[in-house]
Amino acid sequence: MAKKNSSFMDKLKSEFTTTALVLIPIGIAINQIGRLISTALALPVFLDTIGTVFMAMLAGPWVAGIGGFLTNVVTAIAYGRPTSVFFGTVQLFIGLVVGFFVWKGWLKKPLPVLGTGVLLAVTAAFVSSLISTLVAGGVSGSGVDVLVAVFLAAGQKYWTSMVGARIITESIDKIIAVFVPWLSIKRLPEKYARLFKYTNKIR
């Protein structure tokens, strides 16, 4: 048992190559500036997970999960928002889910990528409903709170409104967040692609 455990740790460590470590700050930065683009295009989405998906497709689930979680740690340190660390769990799950699919080699065709986008929306909706209920009494400080209130006012149950409102706002967000990195990495020149372990799993 102990031996199996240590080999897992070794495997985990081997995922974090210097190239992968250097990718994390860039992935986090992409997560942060997603908002810049959605403002430029006047879209009602956040796009704060593009960087996490990007990391997952280049460096796999563990790097993406940890990098995603660190996105919120960095937000907490930069703006002094301790609550954002709790919401890092959403990013952790997204990184792990996409990374797992990439590792399995399931994301070679567009249709499974679309499916992944929908699945991510559902995952994010459940995890963030749970966290915002536990930490912040059901609010998350974004536009989705208004939609939740509308659902509740229309007579829906508490959890139906929480999750339902989030699935609506998340789905367009997550479908874009999966497709854009996927298309870019498919077109990545071979010279760079072979430096990352997971790129051959989606090409």
């Binding site: 190559t17 250097v22 860039i26 992409i30 683009i37 430029a40 990007f54 854009v180 990195p181 870019s184």
Partner: peptide, 29 residues
Amino acid sequence: QRIKSFMPLLGPLFMGSVQQSVEKSMALE
């Protein structure tokens, strides 16, 4: 139309990012 504009905006950023991370890791090593 606006969603379609994502690729031309993020594509160059991703390419640049990959290039940067490769260069940076060499500099760090």
